[in-house]
Design a protein around this nucleic acid. Structure first.
Lengths: 219, 219
DNA sequence: TCCTGTGAACCGCTTCACAGCT
DNA sequence: AGCTGTGAAGCGGTTCACAGGA
């Protein structure tokens, strides 16, 4: 109940738990043991028990954890119990793909704006969205109370877009541009560089060090 | 010279160093100090020095590291000095965006195949590629000696595609499907779940814990 | 008996601190 | 004087191991 301090690593696992617990709930399974959850997530059962313990999430000895309870508490901890509003800057291939990505809406995110500077793109439709000029970024963020910003611009535009998003009220940035984005301390930034992912894999492929095998991206 | 054992964390930073060193090289700057590199990457200078040290990469005291040397050695360590061949399964929005992603080709990856099961998509063009049926996956992987596989299929197809890629010779998998993908121990798997990235940000946005501020995805 | 709750040991990575070249 | 090379301390997270309740 009284959530202790969660470790950074633990926070990055919560969405993984949520994903499989959600699926389990769909099967009408009432409880799940840390062992089964371990099999389905790839996280060790010790770690799972400790994460839940730190979250203040208690199970039933000899049985496991109540699926509904997990679902509710993890969603609440992540802040995805209520819908979150997202804006996307950069309507290139990646930006369009993100705008259409079903996984966002199905997991509690609503995209409320898609922006670009290319006059040829402005006014066109991407799925149910219309591409706006970047000048509408700030008013739309404010009006829609968007808190999450996705950056899928070329690298040289990324910092400016980030700064403008933050000034309008965005408090979390997901940056796909291959460049470092700086933001004030109250803002969280996650960088996802797709080429870097491949390069990391390239290393492991060459050096037959025992491979990876784990979830998510987290720094 | 004799590369010691690199830590997992260190390996995930190498591509970040490479990215900025490449840029620096373009400016004809001959050397770079760990301090400057720290500013440009967001990694601490102590960590950078130790990473280079562990890589067997020596600098010049009082001066810094030679940019050319860094470029060469880091590329070599990552195995991106020579071109790597990549196949992509799943030609939905995300798969198409990845197929067109300029960052791949500019950083030493060549996409040699794009596959889907949807008859409406098979035969159509995506950039310079033609979408093939999944039945061509194995022959093409073998013929082109592809070593990296990208999975951008729906989750229920991900494991089958992964297994087939591996059986044909792929040794590294980048999985975008929101599900756990299992592979034999000699194969490396990295999972990138875009919705999970947003959920992690959502947590930090709610809990004004001091934010993140770091690179890449790594587990 | 089974699976959770949790201190304690352990391990890996980062940071400190400073000696050593140039 | 300046910046690297590197042992050693420090920290955070995972795993061990087992006690404890359903």
């Amino acid at each position: 109940m009284t959530p202790r301090r969660l470790s950074r690593a633990s926070i990055e696992r919560l969405p993984v738990y949520l994903r499989v617990v959600f699926q389990i709930a769909g099967n009408r399974q009432r409880t799940i043991s840390s062992e089964e959850l371990a099999r389905l997530t790839g996280v060790s059962q010790d770690t799972i028990r400790r994460d839940f313990f730190n979250l203040g999430l208690l199970g039933i000895r000899g049985v496991g954890y109540e699926v509904d309870h997990l679902l509710r508490e993890i969603s609440k901890a992540l802040g995805v119990a209520e819908e979150q509003r997202v804006v996307i800057a950069g309507a290139g291939n990646l930006g369009q793909a993100l705008a259409n990505y079903a996984g966002f809406s199905s997991r509690g995110f609503r995209i409320v704006g898609l922006f670009d500077t290319d006059p040829k793109k402005i006014g066109t439709s991407v799925g149910t969205l219309v591409v706006h000029g970047l000048d509408l970024l700030e008013p739309l963020v404010r009006e829609e109370k968007a808190t999450l910003g996705v950056i899928s611009t070329p690298p040289d535009a990324a910092q400016e877009v980030a700064t403008r998003m933050v000034s309008a009220g965005v408090i979390s940035l997901l940056n796909f541009a291959p460049t470092l984005v700086e933001a004030p301390p109250h803002v969280s930034v996650r960088n996802v560089d797709l080429a870097i992912e491949l390069q990391i894999l390239s290393f492991y492929g060459r050096n037959e060090v025992e491979g990876l095998e784990q979830v998510a991206l987290g720094p």
